[in-house]
C-alpha cells in the first residue's frame, strides 16, 4: 500500500497534467510561438480598429488622392483619397469574420459527418465519403466560384461557400480518426453499457479526435483567408464600398507603377494572418503528433 502512495506522489511531481505537457512541447517550437504572437497582434488591432483607425473606411478625400505613405496616411491613400491603413484594419474585420465563420461551419458539418461515417461504417460511410470525393474533385476555388454564382456575392454568402467547400476536408480527417477510434475497446464498452450513439459520438469520440481537427482548423483558416481574398480580387467577394483586402489589391494592380502602396500594403496584410495560421498549424501538428520526425 505504501509503495502505491509513493508512486502516486511521484506522478504528481513528474506529470503536471496533459495541458502543461502540451504547453511545454508547443513553446519549444519558436516559429509557432512567433505565429501565435503575430496572430494575437492581428486580432487585437482588428478588435480595436475603431480606436486605432485614423479615418473611416469609406471616407473619401479628394484633396488627398493617391498620396504616398506619410504621417497623415501611414499606408498612403487610394484613387478616391481613402486612407489605406484604415481600410486594411476594417478589411481585417470583414475577412476574419468571413473566414472564421466559414471554417467553423465546415468544422461542425465535416466533423459530424466524418464521425458518423467512421463510426457506423457500411453504406452510410460509402454514401457520405463518395459525396465528399465528388466535392473534393473540384478545386475549392472553382467550387466556390460556382456556388457564389448560384447564391450571389455577399458577406455571409462567402462564409457559406467556404463552409461547403471545406466540409470535405474536415469530414475526411474526422472519419479517419473515427474509424481507428471506433475499434478501441472503450467505445465498445460504452455500447455494452447502453450509452446512446449520439452521446458516444459527441461526448466521447469528438473530444478524442479534437487534436488533429484543431490542426486542420488552423491550416484551413490560412486557406480561407486566401480564398476570401481571391474571391474579392476576382470581384465576386465582398462588394464595394466595404473594405476588402482582395479588392484593394485588384484596384491597385493597374497603377502599381504610380502608386505601389495601394498594392503592397493590402498584399502584406493578406500575407500576415496566413503566415500566422500556417506556423501555428505546423506547430500544433508537431505537438499533437510527436511521432513525426522533427527537424
Amino acid at each position: 500500500m505504501s509503495t502505491e502512495t509513493d508512486t502516486q506522489t511521484d506522478i504528481e511531481i513528474d506529470e503536471p497534467g496533459p495541458f502543461h505537457e502540451f504547453y511545454e512541447a508547443f513553446s519549444e517550437n519558436r516559429i509557432a510561438v512567433f505565429g501565435l504572437g503575430l496572430l494575437a497582434f492581428l486580432i487585437i488591432i482588428t478588435l480595436l480598429a475603431d480606436f486605432i483607425a485614423p479615418y473611416s473606411a469609406t471616407a473619401q478625400n479628394y484633396d488627398a488622392v493617391l498620396e504616398g505613405p506619410s504621417m497623415d496616411h501611414p499606408m498612403g491613400t487610394d484613387e478616391l483619397g481613402r486612407d489605406i491603413f484604415s481600410r486594411v484594419l476594417f478589411g481585417y474585420r470583414i475577412i476574419f469574420s468571413i473566414t472564421v465563420g466559414g471554417v467553423m461551419m465546415a468544422f461542425t458539418m465535416g466533423t459530424l459527418l466524418g464521425l458518423a461515417a467512421g463510426y457506423y461504417g457500411g453504406w452510410l460511410d460509402e454514401f457520405l465519403m463518395r459525396g465528399v470525393d465528388v466535392l473534393m474533385s473540384f478545386p475549392s476555388l472553382i467550387l466556390a466560384l460556382a456556388l457564389i454564382a448560384a447564391i450571389g456575392p455577399s458577406r455571409w454568402g462567402i462564409a457559406l461557400v467556404l463552409g461547403i467547400a471545406y466540409t470535405p476536408i474536415f469530414a475526411r480527417v474526422a472519419r479517419s480518426e473515427s474509424v481507428s477510434l471506433s475499434n478501441e475497446a472503450f467505445i465498445r464498452s460504452l455500447e455494452v453499457r447502453g450509452v446512446s450513439t449520439p452521446r458516444i459520438l459527441i461526448a466521447h469520440m469528438f473530444p478524442n479526435v479534437l487534436g488533429p481537427l484543431i490542426v486542420t482548423v488552423t491550416l484551413q483558416l490560412a486557406f480561407g483567408i486566401l480564398t476570401t481574398a481571391t474571391l474579392s480580387f476576382l470581384g465576386v467577394g465582398v462588394q464595394p464600398p466595404s473594405p476588402s483586402l482582395g479588392l484593394m489589391l485588384a484596384d491597385g494592380k493597374d497603377i502599381i507603377g504610380r502608386a505601389w502602396w495601394m498594392s503592397l500594403f493590402p498584399g502584406v496584410a493578406i500575407m500576415l494572418p496566413v503566415i500566422a495560421f500556417n506556423t501555428i498549424g505546423d506547430g500544433l501538428r508537431d505537438t499533437f503528433d510527436p511521432k513525426q520526425v522533427r527537424n
Binding site: 478501441e184 475497446a185 472503450f186 465498445r188 464498452s189 460504452l190 455494452v192 453499457r193 447502453g194 450509452v195 446512446s196 452521446r199 466521447h204 473530444p207 478524442n208
Partner: peptide, 26 residues
C-alpha cells in the same frame, strides 16, 4: 463486459470518476 486491454478500455479524456459515473447517469 470487461475487456482485455485495460489501457484502451477507458476513455483517455475522462477522469476515472466520470467514467464510472457515466452508466449511473444514463
Amino acid at each position: 463486459m470487461v475487456f482485455q486491454d485495460p489501457y484502451t478500455s477507458l476513455d483517455p479524456r475522462y477522469k476515472i470518476g466520470r467514467t464510472i459515473a457515466e452508466p449511473l447517469k444514463i
